[in-house]
Design a protein around this nucleic acid. Structure first.
Lengths: 210, 210
DNA sequence: CGACTTATTGATCGCTTGATCAACAACGAA
DNA sequence: TTCGTTGTTGATCAAGCGATCAATAAGTCG
């Protein structure tokens, strides 16, 4: 009864353990937000002593930035694949909006909104935020430009329209985060976006599957 | 040399002192954000002992919620007055957008974005957020509805269009907060909003004074 | 099997937070 | 002036944070 605890510890390779810790941080951030990524909570999630987390990570700020990057990059990649599967720019955009507003992305929305404020005290995070936002804008810009070229969209400034769309996506996501809006109404949203882009009415109608 | 300090304290009426403390919290939140509203920082800002802040306020969460409400209500009131001064719905909206995106509202944007996340752990704040968002939507909805009735706007769902506009405002504000976008380009923004509302091209042209 | 390397532990430090409370003193009343 | 009310102070508590580091033990190698 003297040497009570000290749960049988297993030694892993630094690479493996490091990956486990980052994975735990990512999972934690996805579940409870970036602000839940603490030294001790990550350690608990990775079933590891607090000191080990600090040992494998330069700082908690860096770990938070890494978690943000992993989560948001994965989301963007997912959306990109869906977009590429569509045959027309209008179809791409319809699928993109349907995906982003499918109501199952509150976790990622929370990560985004937290990142905007935490970035003020975490330079690494701020840099990541700018990076991923940039990538989002590029994706949207490509779609809008393609639609402008094909004639599906009638826009004079595809670049600015992409900003507009990104702002709209961010803003509506944040709104749903506050649980204050029942749920974005995709049908009306599609109609409004059609107008923004000068698309043929109904071009984004796939936003309402049925 | 024993009874060294104890800066000559002046006694004020509870009402006056309470107001000073709230004012200090509001000023602090406006300057450094809601997350800077701490027991000790507010005390310092009000030139008062930490204990006195706790004495006049039920909890720091409540004080943060109060500061949020004061700041955002004041902004909305300011915008409302500007809107009422315009003679047409299009003019109202043009003035509203010009005001909101005049580039001098980063302080309020920060307060909003922080409130969205802090609200998750501060029920009083969350309630205030929903309240003021509701008030914003009502203001926008009134303008859109008036424009629809006068024929200036061609919208089928004024209520939804107001959501759209509010989301856009919130999203673009958050973007500028990250300092990642040079500055929203009002000219293009106006054009895009005209499309959303089915307004005559140039109807919101006052967005670019010159 | 014993010795060495090193992954891992967990107590610990220093700091910040919100909150509490006994002691103090400013001001008006008597 | 003296007394009592009460506005005010600042030390203090408990909790939580990131980070550090001596001690420990798991795995490997001779």
């Amino acid at each position: 009864m003297s040497r009570s605890s000290r749960a049988t510890t297993v030694r892993k390779s630094p690479a493996e353990r490091s990956a486990e810790i980052v994975d735990a941080a990512v999972a934690l951030a996805r579940r409870e937000g970036l602000s839940a990524v603490k030294l001790r909570s990550v350690a608990a999630a990775a079933a590891v002593a607090p000191g080990l987390v600090a040992h494998y990570v330069p700082s908690m700020d860096a770990l938070v930035a890494t978690a943000f990057e992993r989560i948001t990059r994965a989301e963007l990649e997912e959306v990109r694949e869906i977009v590429l599967a569509a045959s027309t720019p209008a179809g791409s955009l319809a699928e993109l909006l349907a995906t982003v507003f499918d109501g199952e992305r509150e976790d990622v929305s929370l990560v985004w909104v937290e990142a905007w404020t935490l970035g003020r005290a975490n330079e690494a995070l701020a840099a990541s935020v700018r990076e991923v936002m940039d990538a989002w804008h590029a994706t949207l810009s490509d779609i809008v430009a393609a639609g402008a070229e094909s004639g599906d969209f009638r826009v004079t400034a595809p670049n600015e329209a992409a900003w507009h769309l990104l702002g709209l996506i961010d803003g509506l996501s944040a709104q749903t985060l506050v649980h204050w809006r029942p749920a974005s109404r995709p049908a009306v949203l599609g109609e409004l976006v059609e107008r923004v882009l000068g698309a043929r009415p109904g071009a984004l109608a796939t936003l309402t599957p049925d």
